[in-house]
Design a protein around this nucleic acid. Structure first.
Lengths: 347, 347
DNA sequence: TTGACTCATTTAAACGATTAACCTAGCTTT
DNA sequence: AAAGCTAGGTTAATCGTTTAAATGAGTCAA
């Protein structure tokens, strides 16, 4: 026999469907006697409300969608975990889409998600393009959107960011404190003007500010660029090594590249941190596992997931006319082996 | 203005809702003329069918649920990616739940997912308990379930496994070939009798078989046990080192522990692979990044995700009375630095 | 006794699709 | 010319809820 419906329960309890619905939804006006009969019927028939029917009537999807640029990125999976747990508590589903770094895929997902299947949307990382999002937002103005670690220049989108400038500054200042003198930078792709950052200060800025404050060199010849991937970290480090005088420390804009840099240094026969110290950004789990362990800037990842849900929740209860937020979190320095204090001996 | 419904489109095109529905669903009997008028109205009103209403009527959820024991595990995220892509193509959603290694959470998720919200279920890793699954299966016999890398002893559940015995055998045989003589094992938690394996041959068996075939020692004193986590790998390796004669190679049942073992060896001042060679299992991305790179058994991860969807798809089209499958995939050896051929010099 | 008010419950109309069953010309067929 | 088809629709029931409005039985003040 198929699943029991409200009707079945009503019949068994000898009441109307409205009463059963009331009991199920915890309305207060039902007599204890009837409530008892209904509950008995409910358990006897193993009744569970049909969420789809409920959704149709209430126009709530009881689900939020998430589009992530790369599910295999450990930084993002922590966020997903946070989201998943928060949603679980409010009895909502998480509909997850992996864009695999492809904008066309992300767009398709966006399209599908918005077919009134979700109450809200979380965009994690650089998953969907701004134009694409703008277009859809126009058609579904009622669906709140919160973006994590990606700054769309759209109002109507709440934004959760980590303060890259500050983080980069802290990381670089730490290297200075530890006694390093000439501090290089491995940066991400063409920061600054791109739509990615939308005028917000970048990691490059933070690095530069720290060095300027300390009166240290911070010219472009100390900078190499990568694509945030491991291999590009290797190449960038190699390039830095080819430009004497070589730095005795390097701040790397993310951990994946930092690991690549570590590899390059090892290949070049240089010791870490004795010859060249390293600080990364993101605190992905591997960073603690390599030898020497990588110093890095930890993101409030799990918290970002929860926060995303909280913001969404607020937007949903506030209804249309909710006011978007923009929050900036601070990354915190994790000191590990790769940036141990320089010992006296200057080569 | 809210989203247009079938009715609105029908009114604008001057036809009945049934006709519009037919056009939208690509029925063939509609005249080209009317079809044109309808399509015009559809685009004019930006009509998109309400999937919830459709679901209610057709009793299909157009979604599959997945419960994963740990979203942050890179091995699982690859599977999720595969699933996500496959689902995208059949216009279904992925509802993802992270159990965070907690059975109570997994159970709650299972409960919620089955409230007629999904067409099928994918269980990834050791997420839900057998008893829990059995109980729910009884109540929702129509929802097909496929389990990945976890062998429930339940019929009605399709199972996708990787051949652990064979993989362990290959890894161990490889070490023998490379010239190593005394080969240890770091195994997972109490394999064998547990519900986890359900009588299927384990990694320990594979290790033992390879050594037996080669006439090498394979006693219990060569075995240490861990919990599949990094720290336990460190401890297990330490323990192995405390039991002379020490092995000159170790097969480790998963990569996380292998990385831990690598750390322990380094602490002990031993070189890899010169003093002790290592082969892991899983081929998580980090394994290629550490130095020396970790040899390991690669899983057909992405393929598992796709396969899970294919099996589910088959079950769905076959309707009730579908026949469950059980497939075993083979892990393939990735030779890297940690198991380079032993050079002549025997200490 | 009669309204006016509660209180506990029922009735019935939605929500937005799908789909079986019915309708109506216009053409064959016999 | 009557019956039978077919192509091209339309009508209306239905999926399982929620919920505003209606109902009916007490209670109580006037």
């Amino acid at each position: 026999m198929a699943n029991a419906t409200l009707k079945d329960v009503a019949a068994r309890a000898g009441v109307s469907v409205a009463t059963v619905s009331a009991v199920v939804n915890g309305a207060s006006w039902v007599t204890d006697a009837t409530r008892g009969r209904v509950q008995q019927a409910v358990t006897a028939l193993h009744y569970r409300p049909n969420r789809v029917a409920r959704s149709l009537k209430t126009k709530q999807a009881y689900a939020v969608g998430a589009i992530v640029s790369d599910v295999t990125n450990p930084f993002f999976t922590e966020i997903i975990r946070g989201l998943s747990h928060a949603l679980q508590e409010t009895d909502r589903h998480l509909v997850l889409c992996d864009a695999d770094h492809r904008f066309d895929l992300a767009d398709a997902h966006l399209h599908r998600l918005l077919d009134q299947q979700v109450d809200g949307l979380v965009l994690i990382g650089d998953s969907v393009q701004e134009a694409s999002l703008a277009r859809h937002l126009e058609q579904y103005p009622s669906v709140p959107v919160v973006a994590i670690e990606r700054d769309y220049g759209l109002d109507g989108v709440s934004t959760l960011l980590v303060d890259s400038e500050q983080g980069a500054h802290d990381a670089t200042a730490h290297l200075i404190e530890q006694g390093y003198g000439r501090i290089g930078l491995i940066a991400g792709p063409t920061e600054g003007a791109g739509s990615q950052t939308h005028g917000r200060a970048t990691r490059t800025e933070g690095w530069r500010r720290a060095l300027a404050e300390a009166g240290r060199p911070h010219g472009d010849n100390l900078i190499a660029r990568g694509t945030f991937r491991y291999e590009s970290g290797v190449e960038a480090m190699d390039e830095l090594l080819r430009r004497p005088p070589r730095p005795d420390a390097v701040f790397v804009a993310n951990d994946m590249m930092a690991l690549g840099a570590m590899h390059a240094l090892r290949q070049a026969g240089l010791r870490i941190p004795d010859d060249v110290a390293l600080v990364g950004f993101d605190d992905i789990p591997v960073s603690a596992l390599v030898a020497p362990a990588m110093s890095t800037m930890a993101m409030p990842t799990r918290h970002l997931g929860r926060a995303a849900h909280e913001v969404l929740q607020d937007h949903l209860t506030d209804g249309p006319g909710y006011v978007t937020v923009r929050r900036t979190y601070r990354a915190s320095l994790q000191v590990r082996g790769s940036s141990l204090a320089r010992v006296a001996a200057t080569e």
